[in-house]
Amino acid sequence: MPEPKEEETLALASQGDKEAFGILYERYVERIFNYVYYRTGNVHDAEDLTARVFYRALHHIQNYTDRGVPFSAWLYRIAHNLVANWHRDRSRHQEIPLSDAPTLHYKGAAPETAVVQTQDQEALLRIIRHLPSERQHLLILKFVEHLSNAEIGQIMGRSEGAVKSLYHRTLLALRDELEGVDIVGD
């Protein structure tokens, strides 16, 4: 059966259609989870924040108006606000690291292939997490979602050229940071 069109699903969901919101949830849950996971680096918090993104979306879907930008942009904005709050709360309270974090797998990989990051990858992720949020968002959309500059521009509310320029500046910033930890040179 062909998937219903985004606009139709959105119109139904905003009228309170249970099935339509379910379709949107299925379509975007992985993307939002990936965004939150790479922004927080923590499975528990990524799951908690992803759930909150969809609860908030559910409560406000009646007010959603199609302004020609993808629905994902709306969801990412909710996720961005929640992640920002999470970082703010986290800086105020000392967190105790959880040792019983569930194991995750790369998408499409065999179930026994758990996500394991090398020291270099961990260092790179740490550096990415210290970048301004819009640069992190750009990298996630480009490398995790494999979106084009035009698609990223639609989501981030920028022109294709602005995305290209931001990407170049992000690479420069990353290169400078990586030189400090000697990862890029190997």
Binding site: V29, L124, L139, L171
Partner: peptide, 27 residues
């Protein structure tokens, strides 16, 4: 740098129990 980024930032599958559980809670 792009190679390093593509190796590090790979799509991750959330836990199935989480996705189904949240879907049910939302319904």
């Amino acid at each position: 740098l792009e190679n390093k980024l593509s190796v590090t930032l790979r799509p991750i599958a959330p836990r199935k129990e989480f996705v189904h559980g949240l879907g049910n809670r939302i319904q």
